[in-house]
Write a protein that binds this DNA or RNA. Structure first.
Lengths: 157, 157
DNA sequence: GTTTATAGTTAGATAAATCTAACATTTTTA
DNA sequence: TAAAAATGTTAGATTTATCTAACTATAAAC
């Protein structure tokens, strides 16, 4: 099946995210979540319905189909993972990480995503806790030079 | 002035990149570079001209204005930097890094860009050469576990 | 220097994504 | 339960970005 547009992915993800905390899903909620007007939502939901990703009872509630749920979860997973990488590894602020993740999630390749996920996990599972080299990076980012203890702590032979 | 769309940024960047290796710039070149048809280029160039970023003699050559050049360079710089980060730090393959950079360049925030640039430089200027921890990451990415020498080499106290 | 080939342009179509304004349905409430 | 409020839908407009087909201008070749 043809790939979803960025916009449709956003709508699908919004429905998914809303469903995590809300019992029912309405057009108005989606509009609020995405900062668009309700006719835009109706339009998008129509297109998602055509593709069998959403079920929408007229004037009533919305639901993801199985396929819709899976796709939505996939998109949202990417979002979460890009966010984590930006925030935890690169040290980008919370808000900006979220915003960037929201855009990038639609475009990043499987391969890059995989490396980001692994990188984040590499940091998170570091045997020594928060890795020394990442401390050193933060120092470098702040001061523009490697800390004096850098060589010592990282030399391998 | 209003932000350029992704598409217009692509056209502008294309013109810039072509100008690096080609004496003159033509509609056809741009079309080839971006894999679109010439009417699309004419249209886009028209919009770039309206914004004072490009000069186009009818049936003739194209040129970037000063402002256009600056903007194009900015966009292309982002491209280069995202590419480098993905390729050199994350270890994403050449081709995919390029493709991803091409998309992401339009969306990434100044802050995240800044951190990526610094991260790449942090790696490149590492006093010990290619850093041990990055070798460890590559090991981790390949085998799914930290190398046995990991703790030793990175412990700080 | 005409003809032919190449390149560029215009016109008109289509699709996505948004909006406002008007209308319809449901739900709430007095 | 009838009026009012809230929510949802439709219709129609706008912008961007593409395309194809038809036309026009410039360059090349003979």
């Amino acid at each position: 099946m043809k790939k979803l547009t960025q916009s449709l992915e956003d709508y699908l993800e919004a429905i998914y995210v809303i469903s995590l905390t809300s019992k029912v899903i309405r057009v108005k909620e989606i509009a609020k979540f995405l900062n668009v007007k309700t006719p835009s939502v109706v339009d998008a939901v129509g297109r998602l319905t055509e593709r069998g990703l959403v079920i929408h009872e007229k004037y009533g509630y919305l639901e993801l189909t199985g396929k819709g749920y899976e796709l939505a979860k996939e998109v949202n997973d990417k979002h979460e993972k890009v966010y984590k990488f930006f925030n935890e590894v690169l040290g980008v602020s919370d808000n900006i990480s979220k915003k960037d993740a929201c855009n990038i999630e639609h475009y990043i390749s499987k391969e890059a995503m995989d490396r980001m996920i692994k990188f984040t996990r590499f940091v998170d599972t570091c045997p020594e806790g928060y890795p020394e080299w990442l401390k050193n990076f933060n120092y470098y980012a702040k001061h523009g030079r490697h800390p004096s203890n850098c060589t010592k702590n990282n030399v391998s032979k």
